[in-house]
């Protein structure tokens, strides 16, 4: 590693650890990993069953991650995307291909600790092969100024008997502007769970459109959203499951807590195009539950302490 890159790497990894990342995994040969700052690939590591290729593109990086047929990854793949400067733009185009019968978990951290004007665009394509399983867990850390615009889009196709679960988590720092657009297509007996847990404050604005198309028989999908908004934060959530085949099961589940002058809009959309499909939804938006609050206060917690316990439970 040349000196400059080494420095950049060390700086990023410092924040990576602070946001809960396991930095030992980034340098271990047993873990597949990628570390990207801006449009620099600072480190990448393939393993026996996981092949990673990267390419610089304008304002960002293209990455292709292939999990070979039948490979069951024992260790998670660690991804660290970030931008340390205050301003800039980062585009990550990724393609994840999990071949038949493989299984893998991704642990991704997206870190913009100093952002005042940063735009992070993520365009992902995920193909989950027959009976393969992909878990993708993405944790964001955006610093305190709220000057980040995060625009992640994912298109995923899950083949027969496969499973794709993804979660988007932002539980500390500011959200800034987030605009999530996920679309998942499921073949027969495939399943998927899309989870987003985000808190917002100040002028933060959060949008999420998450759709699961239940195209094959016996496919099942759940869209689950949890948000806690304070001050003048705003959210707009559309969770959608579309039952298109016999015995397809879909569920949309959205709970949001709003405080101060925060505003939230949630639209659970359920549609069925087959008489034997079944799709359901539940959505609740409101202030912190009074009974929960009082219960914790009878234990001696102040109102603020009690709200923290309730909100962190919801986002856990």
């Amino acid at each position: 590693m040349d000196e400059l890159i080494k420095k950049e790497y060390e700086n990023l990894v410092k924040y990576y650890e602070a946001s809960g990342g396991n930095s030992k995994a980034l340098i271990s040969d047993n873990y597949a990993s990628i570390v990207i700052n801006g449009n620099h690939v600072l480190a990448k590591n393939s393993t026996k069953g996981i092949v990673i290729e990267t390419k610089k593109i304008e304002d960002g990086v293209y990455a292709r991650i292939l999990i070979k047929k039948g490979h069951k990854a024992k260790n998670p793949v660690h991804l660290c995307f970030g931008m340390l400067p205050r301003e800039g733009k980062q585009i990550i185009r990724s393609e994840i291909i999990a071949e038949e019968g493989s299984s893998v978990k991704f642990i991704a951290h997206c870190i913009f600790p100093n952002a005042t004007h940063i735009k992070h665009i993520m365009k992902s394509k995920v193909i989950v092969g027959r009976n393969a399983k992909v878990e993708y867990e993405e944790t964001h850390f955006h610093g305190k100024s709220g000057g980040v615009r995060v625009i992640p889009t994912t298109f995923a196709r899950v083949e027969e008997g496969g499973e794709y679960n993804s979660s988007f988590l932002l539980r500390s720092g500011r959200a800034g502007y987030i605009d999530i657009d996920y679309e998942v297509h499921l073949a027969s007996c495939a399943q998927s769970m899309l989870i987003s847990k985000i808190h917002g404050m100040g002028e933060d604005e959060i949008r999420a459109r998450e759709s699961i198309y239940l195209e094959g028989e016996h496919s099942s999908g759940v869209v689950k959203t949890r948000m806690a908004l304070r001050e003048r934060a705003k959210s707009e959530v559309v969770g959608k499951t579309i039952g298109m085949a016999a015995y397809a099961r879909g569920h949309v589940d959205c709970t949001e807590i709003i405080m101060d002058e925060a505003r939230a809009e949630a639209s659970p959309v359920v549609a069925a195009y087959h008489p034997l499909a079944k799709v359901t939804h539940e959505a609740a938006i409101g202030s912190v539950d009074k009974k929960q609050l009082l219960t914790l206060m009878t234990r001696g917690l102040t109102q603020e302490e009690a709200i923290d316990v309730i909100v962190s439970g919801l986002l856990k």
Binding site: K291, Q292, L294, M297, T298, R299, L301, V309, L315
Partner: peptide
């Protein structure tokens, strides 16, 4: 005194229908 101040003095109450908490 407020609820939590009374609690810190050593008074507490168990509700007839206790609350449930997601994630706790």
């Amino acid at each position: 005194l407020s609820v939590w101040e009374r609690a810190r003095l050593g008074i507490t109450l168990a509700f007839q229908e206790p609350a449930r908490f997601e994630g706790l």
